[in-house]
Design a protein around this nucleic acid. Sequence first.
DNA 1: AGGAAGATCTACT
DNA 2: GTAGATCTTCCTA
Length: 196
Amino acid sequence: MRGVITVKVLGKKFYMRDPSIIARALLGKKLVRKWNRSFLEGIIVETEAYYGLNDPASRAFHGLKQYNRFMWGDPGILFIYNVHNYWMLNIVSHEPSEVGAVLIRSLEPVNGTEIMKANRNVEDIYLTTSGPGRLTRAFQIDKSFNGIPITTNESEIYIAENQIEGKIVSSHRIGVTKDMRRELRFYLSKNKFVSR
DNA sequence: AGGAAGATCTACT
DNA sequence: GTAGATCTTCCTA
């Protein structure tokens, strides 16, 4: 093993918990996207938890459909859908026989920033990945990733263990028309890459 | 086949 | 702070 850098990838078990637990636990972790021979990497700094039939803001609220079926499926796979011409990156996350997912809302770029800027066609680093629609453009993630597992480093996309920096705070969710009473948005306080 | 909604973003005042 | 862009997906007929 000499000379081999071991990366600890979050496995399926990590995602088999309550969505709000996982939304918090993902903060500070590193999202890795293989891109040709190099890697696009960003620290997760903002997330939201979504539940099933009892969550009016959730894609699963109206029941099992073709497009949302992954929310009922195996934890640790991607659930991707479109809003206003932007792709939303979710990770299926729930306890056994439950329903749920976590939305990745913002990243702090750490590797491949020039590629991200080019993908977004912006110069300002703070505009590359600070929002759910922005980060999927920067990382070139679209519907073709819907349903793929991210639980090993064989995957095109995975999330790696990482030291968290900063304090976790919560708020109500952003952009949803009907929300639950609970605060289900989580972010790192004072991080400049959290969406507006 | 057509309409409407949408977990957004951008540019403007 | 608000309006308009833009397009995918779903729902109904």
